[in-house]
C-alpha cells in the first residue's frame, strides 16, 4: 500500500458515479495529484470540496500508478471571497490555470508557495492583482516558457527595458525598439520591480502573459484553449480599474 499525507489546494472536483468525486489537489511535494473522494458527491462534503480550499489530503493506493483515494480534512476555507466578484474571479483563474497547465504528479514547490500566498491575499485588493500577474509569470517560467527580462535582446542594455518580443519572449529596450515598438508587447515597469503597479501596467502585464499563455503554453498542451476563468478575470479587472 502506498500512502502519503500533505496539505494542499483543491483545484477541481468532478462527480464520479452516484456519490463519489474525483478531485485534483495541488501539493508542495506531489504537485497536481488526482484521487477519488468517497462520498465526495454528497451534500455533507460539498462545503469542503470547493476549488481554492486549503485541505489536508491523505492519499492511499495499492500501486503507485493507481488513481487512489483521498481522505480529506479542512485546513481553511476561502469561501469568504465568494462575495467579492474580483477576488472570486482571481480564485477561479488561479485554480483553473493550475489544473489546466500543470503536469500530473510533478512537484513544483516554488509555484505551490506562490499560489498559496496569492490565494491567502485575495481579500487585499491593493496587493493581490500584482501578485496574480507575478503568479502567471512564475507559471510560464515553471513550465519552460519563462520570459527573459534581464537585458535587451538587441543591444544587451539593462536599462530602459520597455517592450517584450512576442516571438522570443525577450526584453527590448526603448532605444533598440525604434520603429518596431508598435509590433512589440509593452513591458510594464512593475514586472521589473520598479514601483507599485498602476491599473494600466497591470493590464499591460496581463496582456503580455496572456499572449504567451495563448501562443506558447496552450499549443504545448494540445491546443486546448486557456480557461475562460482567466479571460473573465481580465475583463473584470479592465472594468474595475
Amino acid at each position: 500500500m502506498i500512502a502519503w499525507q500533505e496539505e494542499g489546494v483543491l483545484l477541481s472536483v468532478r462527480k464520479h458515479g452516484e456519490s463519489s468525486a474525483i478531485v485534483e489537489a495541488f501539493t508542495r511535494s506531489h504537485g497536481r495529484h488526482a484521487g477519488v473522494v468517497r462520498g465526495g458527491g454528497g451534500r455533507r462534503m460539498a462545503p469542503l470540496l470547493q476549488p481554492g480550499g486549503q485541505l489536508s489530503f491523505s492519499w492511499r493506493a495499492r500501486l503507485e500508478d493507481h488513481l487512489g483515494a483521498f481522505t480529506i480534512e479542512p485546513v481553511r476555507s476561502r469561501s469568504a471571497h465568494f462575495a467579492d466578484p474580483l477576488a472570486l474571479a482571481g480564485l477561479s483563474a488561479v485554480t483553473s490555470l493550475l489544473a489546466f497547465a500543470l503536469p500530473e504528479r510533478e512537484p513544483h514547490p516554488g509555484l505551490y508557495t506562490r499560489s498559496v500566498a496569492l490565494l491567502d491575499m485575495l481579500g487585499d485588493e491593493d496587493v493581490w492583482p500584482l501578485a496574480y500577474l507575478v503568479f502567471e509569470m512564475a507559471l510560464l517560467e515553471e513550465l519552460g516558457f519563462g520570459l527573459d527580462l534581464s537585458r535587451c535582446t538587441l543591444s544587451g542594455d539593462r536599462e530602459n527595458l520597455a517592450f517584450v518580443s512576442p516571438r522570443t519572449g525577450r526584453a527590448v529596450s526603448r532605444e533598440a525598439a525604434g520603429d518596431w515598438a508598435d509590433r512589440l508587447l509593452p513591458l510594464p515597469p512593475c514586472l521589473l520591480g520598479q514601483g507599485p503597479a498602476t491599473a494600466g501596467e497591470l493590464l499591460d502585464g496581463l496582456r503580455l502573459t496572456g499572449h504567451f499563455l495563448d501562443t506558447r503554453l496552450a499549443p504545448a498542451l494540445g491546443d486546448r484553449p486557456i480557461p475562460g476563468a482567466r479571460t473573465r478575470l481580465v475583463e473584470r479587472m479592465r472594468r474595475r480599474f
Binding site: P47, L48, F82
Partner: peptide
C-alpha cells in the same frame, strides 16, 4: 459548520 458558512 465549516468556517466559510460561519463567516457568511
Amino acid at each position: 459548520l465549516d468556517d466559510g458558512t460561519i463567516t457568511a
